[in-house]
Amino acid sequence: MADQHKVPDRRKLFGEMALQVISHGGLRALTHRSVDEAAGLPTGSVNYYAPTRSKLYALAMAEVYHQMYEIATRAFGPILADGSDRSPGPILDCTTAFVMAMSTEGREISNARCALLVESQFDDVLREQVTTNRTAFIAFTEPFVRAQAPGSPERTAELIVALIDGLIQQQTLVTASNFHRAMIRTTISRIFGFSEN
């Protein structure tokens, strides 16, 4: 009998492969066949987990957010480990690390996510995934802005998430060369409303 701990999670595998296909060829490249080929599996393998194109999108989007959370966990590790330090310096350092990581190692994730965000305007399941995950990022950000905006920390966190998301999109989709770390840190300081030191 095979060791069940070594059997890959097919849903995750197909999500990773769908993300890979989108990041290299856009949504038009995403087909059931392309996902099966990327996974190195026989044609029709993904159909059990994602019988429709919409379900392929959902698998890819789930993987996008999974990988974004992994990057965020690493970037914010220093202040997550010691949750008591909510001073501007560590918040700025961690947020800058997150933007830089999403702009480099997470570039393909960001690009695929942008393509899926457009599609989410026409797909209720994708839109729900986007809303759920945006809400989670807002909740994650809210404790960092509470001292700056005690009257409206949730709305302030929502705006910060949107602006940071825009900065990541600028870094990955628009800019010929990325902005340097110091410029990003200064921009993030302004987004958070921290006074310059």
Rank of each mutant, 00 (worst) to 15 (best):
M1W: 06
A2H: 13
V7K: 15
R10T: 11
K12A: 13
K12Y: 12
F14Q: 09
L19F: 03
G25C: 10
G26S: 00
L30P: 06
R33K: 13
V35M: 11
V35W: 12
G40C: 06
L41I: 09
S45W: 07
N47Q: 15
P51M: 00
P51N: 01
L59T: 05
A62S: 14
E63T: 09
V64W: 11
V64H: 11
V64R: 12
Y65V: 01
Y69C: 06
T73Q: 14
D82W: 10
G83R: 08
S84C: 04
S84N: 12
R86D: 07
P90K: 12
I91K: 06
L92I: 02
D93C: 07
A97W: 03
V99F: 08
S103P: 04
T104R: 15
I109N: 04
A115K: 07
L116K: 08
L117H: 15
L117E: 15
V118T: 15
S120F: 06
L126N: 09
R127H: 14
V130R: 10
V130Y: 15
T132D: 13
N133F: 00
R134F: 12
A136M: 08
F137D: 05
I138T: 01
I138V: 15
A139M: 12
F140Y: 10
T141G: 02
P143K: 00
F144K: 03
Q148F: 05
R155I: 10
A157S: 03
I164C: 06
G166F: 08
L167E: 09
I168T: 06
Q169L: 14
Q170I: 03
L173W: 06
S177H: 11
N178W: 06
N178P: 09
F179Y: 10
F179M: 13
F179R: 14
H180Y: 08
A182F: 06
I184W: 08
T187G: 09
T187N: 08
I188T: 02
I188W: 07
R190S: 10
G193N: 04
G193Y: 00
S195T: 08
S195M: 07
E196M: 13
N197E: 11
